[in-house]
């Protein structure tokens, strides 16, 4: 997934925000099903390894959410059977399925988000809105790996002095807390040196800071951006016009088959496939280039 991850962060972020908005705003069975399937596909493309483990996590979660809903909710008019005197209804079961599709779909897309929106992209976007906070975040992200390394060094040094002995739970907790306390002093002392280095390079000189980044908004980003806005607009507009109304309780409503609804389904489907299609396009271009040489 090099091509999709190479897009301008603003484009990628808009894509995910719109996607999650639709996921959480329009609990429509068709849209939810699409989001779930395409989410799984995109995740499979993005992170090829660990797929088996993921199935082991998402499938039980899906079942858990789907099955527990009818146990807690007894709305609906079509009882399937009775449990402890409470009806388990078809509507509640289907609503549970839809919820499960939503939850798992959102989780899958979040996984894709975490894969694509690395911390530097996030910081860039965040920094455009709140530069200072983004600087603090950037520093925290820079400190963390150094702290982990130092914590390891401290615990080994303590161990080699015989002060980190014992393998019981209490000992382990106590040892780790000791290391953490030592880390507080170490990190803050070093942080003051970092502050000196910031001041030495003009931080706080009273000028308004600029926000520099390596990202550039290129024509391809514009094209992707336009496409995603257009495609996302369709289901949102259809929903606003009431063409995607669907209710579970008290009884299931009919699935819409109006032209507007079909357009919305198709557009949303394309929208969800945008990352995969973008990848395919890049792969094609690459192959053509190679052939020309």
């Amino acid at each position: 997934m090099k091509a999709f991850a190479g897009l301008h962060p603003a484009v990628t972020m808009t894509y995910f925000v719109l996607l999650l908005t639709v996921c959480m705003f329009l609990p429509h069975p068709v849209l939810q099903g699409q989001a779930l399937v395409c989410g799984a596909l995109t995740c499979a493309l993005l992170c090829r390894r660990g797929a088996a483990r993921d199935v082991g996590f998402y499938l039980p979660l899906f079942l858990l959410v789907a099955v527990t809903n009818p146990l807690f909710s007894h709305n609906g008019v079509t009882p399937l059977f009775f449990l402890n005197g409470n009806p388990v209804t078809l509507e509640a079961l289907l609503y549970g399925l839809s919820l499960a599709a939503m939850v798992v779909g959102v989780l899958l897309w979040c996984k894709a988000y975490n894969e694509v929106m690395t911390s530097d992209k996030f910081l860039y976007l965040f920094g455009a809105v709140t530069p200072k906070l983004s600087l603090v975040l950037s520093m925290a992200l820079r400190f963390l790996p150094a702290y982990r390394r130092q914590a390891r060094r401290v615990s080994r040094a303590q161990k080699a002095m015989g002060l980190y002995a014992g393998s019981s739970m209490v000992c382990r907790v106590k040892n780790r807390l000791r290391v953490l306390a030592a880390m507080v002093t170490w990190s803050l002392e070093n942080a003051m040196e970092t502050a000196a280095s910031m001041k030495a390079r003009g931080y706080g000189s009273g000028k308004r800071r600029t926000h520099f980044s390596l990202f550039r908004f290129r024509p391809a980003d514009g094209a992707f951006f336009a496409a995603l806005l257009l495609l996302a607009a369709a289901p949102l507009a259809a929903a606003a016009a009431g063409a995607l109304n669907f209710t579970y309780y008290p009884r299931l409503s009919q699935l819409q088959t109006t032209p507007a609804a079909w357009v919305a389904y198709a557009a949303y489907g394309l929208f969800l496939l945008l990352p995969a299609m973008w990848e395919a396009k890049e792969a094609l271009v690459w192959r053509c280039c190679k052939r020309k040489i």
Binding site: V136, M139, S187, A191, A195
Partner: peptide
């Protein structure tokens, strides 16, 4: 100032640690 920002950054990194 720089020190306050960095203090927050350091405390954040510590709690994540």
């Amino acid at each position: 100032g720089a020190r306050r920002l960095i203090l927050i950054a350091a405390m954040t990194a510590l709690s994540v640690l």
